[in-house]
Amino acid sequence: MISIFLVTALLIIASIFLSLYRGVVGPGVFNRVAAVNVIGTKTIALLVILGYYFERPLFFDIAILYAMLNFIGALVFAKYIERGDVCS
C-alpha cells in the first residue's frame, strides 16, 4: 500500500509540472493565476498523501492551512485586478 501512495504522489507531481508549463509560458496574467491556483489545489492532495506515506498526521494541518491560503490568495488577486486596489 505504501508503494501505491508513492506512485500516486509521483503522478501528482507530474501533473503539477504539466500545470507549471502554463504558469511559466501562458500569455497574460490570468493564465498564470489559474495555473498557480491549480498547483495549490494539487499540493493539498499531495500533502495529504505524503502525510500517510511518512505517517505524520501533522501534514493534514499544513494541508488545511494551505487550502485557506490558496483560497484567500485567489480572492485577493481577483479583487486587486478588478478594482486596482485591495481595500475598497
Binding site: 489559474a34 491556483n37 489545489t41 488545511i64 487550502a67 490558496n70 483560497f71 485567489a74 488577486f77 481577483a78
Partner: peptide, 25 residues
Amino acid sequence: VRLLFLIFFIFIANPTATHTVMKAA
C-alpha cells in the same frame, strides 16, 4: 474529521475561487 473538513472546504472554496478569477477577467 480534519480530512472531512478539507473535502468540504475544497468543494466550497474551489468553485468560488474559479468564479472570482473568471469575473475579474
